[in-house]
């Protein structure tokens, strides 16, 4: 109880120093949050492209509907397959005209073949799996040809791998910088109160008792800094959405993780800093 009261009292006694701690945590996490925002949007963009990965199996003219329907059931039972759609010659013409816009009159009815459009489940959209499923579909007698955009599937997969690696590396670097800056700030704040710690020891306070208000203060500052960083990141995201392009924001789980991360940095940073100070005295 006394620890909690002291933790809040220190905000009142040294408002500038406390504000410095909160702002440092907030801006360090804000920089990390901006990076996270870019990473989330790149991930979403790649995801939306990846969702479009599909295998198109063109059906030979004159194939009985029963044969293609039976094949649809087979293909749908493949563990990698999410959905199979039959596109008739007429549907293919409508789709082609819609996609080509002003050049829609280049196709005559009956020119385009019917097809089975196969979508794969997430996690099965890498080049190797796509090619394996495509080859299995190609083995049906009535299938003339199979297309799945080999080149761009491979490129997309490579891009996703690079984005994941770069994102993880940069993320760790940003997080490390944030932890170092926040840790240094907390250490300065604890050092500024070295005399108070020394007096507490001289009058017989145990180390655990001395630590508690500082640890709580670090935790509170971490939560406040995390919330401030979240607010700043949200404001930035909203401003970009209004001015340039629509951007995705963190989902509630990620946002909560950000604040919890700030709280944990504050908690462990202050625990470490007080421990150092107690060893020095």
């Amino acid at each position: 109880m006394m620890a909690l009261r002291e933790a809040f009292a220190s905000f009142r006694r040294a408002p500038l120093l406390s504000a410095l701690g909160v702002i440092t945590i907030a801006f360090s996490l804000f920089a990390f949050g901006l990076f996270g925002l870019v990473a989330v949007n790149i991930r979403d963009a790649l995801q939306s492209i990846e969702d479009r990965v599909e295998i198109r199996a063109f059906i030979a003219d004159g194939t009985p509907v029963e044969a293609s329907s039976a094949a649809m059931g087979d293909i749908h039972a493949f563990p990698e397959v999410l959905s199979v759609t039959y596109v008739s010659q007429d549907d293919a013409l409508v789709r082609a005209r819609k996609e080509l816009g002003e050049f829609s009159d280049v196709f005559e009815p009956g020119v385009l073949p019917a097809s089975l459009d196969v979508k794969l489940k997430p996690g099965y959209r890498d080049p190797t799996t796509v090619m394996a499923v495509a080859n299995r579909i190609k083995s049906y007698d009535f299938v003339d040809d199979v297309r799945y955009g080999e080149d761009w599937v491979a490129k997309l997969y490579r891009l996703r791998t690079i984005a994941t690696l770069v994102g993880t590396g940069l993320g760790l670097a940003f997080a490390a910088v944030a932890v170092i800056i926040i840790g240094a700030t907390i250490r300065i704040m604890v050092m500024a109160r070295a005399e108070e710690i020394a007096i507490m020891r001289l009058v017989g306070a145990t180390n655990g008792f001395i630590r508690m208000p500082f640890v709580l203060e670090g935790f509170i500052q971490g939560v406040m800094g995390g919330l401030l960083a979240l607010g700043l990141t949200w404001a930035t995201s909203t401003a970009i959405s209004h001015s340039f392009m629509r951007t995705a924001f963190f989902d509630p789980t990620l946002a909560t993780l950000g604040v919890v991360g700030g709280a944990l940095i504050g908690l462990f940073g202050s625990t470490f800093a007080v421990g150092r100070q107690l060893r020095r005295l």
Binding site: E195, E196, G204, T206
Partner: peptide, 25 residues
Amino acid sequence: SKKEVSMIRRHLGIVFQDFRLLEDR
């Protein structure tokens, strides 16, 4: 032990030349 040191100090009063008071209280 550290705990015993804390307990013993509760029965010692210590005064210094430079007072060592907390200025913000």
